[in-house]
């Protein structure tokens, strides 16, 4: 199935918005691992404005925001 990945904030530096074919049982944690993003970035997926736990799953057509926890002061 297809989901759309939308990088937010600094994640735009590391990936572009794109559609991705995934298995129906793919978890958010595995999806993040597959993106091959820098180890130092702690990444969270958001769906419809809510965090998805690493064991959370997706449905066809989901728009998934990819967000880093990075924060400045």
């Amino acid at each position: 199935m297809k989901v759309c990945l939308v990088p937010v904030g600094i994640m735009k530096k590391y990936m572009k918005e794109r559609d991705l074919d995934i298995e129906a049982d793919l978890t958010a944690g595995t999806l993040i691992e597959r993106l091959n993003l820098p180890d130092k970035l702690k990444i969270i997926c958001f769906l419809n404005g809510k965090r998805i736990n690493p064991d959370g799953r997706f449905t066809e057509g989901d728009v998934v925001k990819i967000v880093s926890t990075f924060a400045g002061g």
Binding site: G9, I10, P38, K40, V67, S68
Partner: peptide
């Protein structure tokens, strides 16, 4: 460091948009 690179480029507000999504 990645954080240094990010802040050098766009300052300490580099990820403000991400912070809005998480509610920070």
């Amino acid at each position: 460091a990645l954080a240094s690179d990010v802040m050098r480029e766009n300052g300490t507000a580099a990820n403000l948009e991400g912070g809005v999504v998480s509610g920070d």
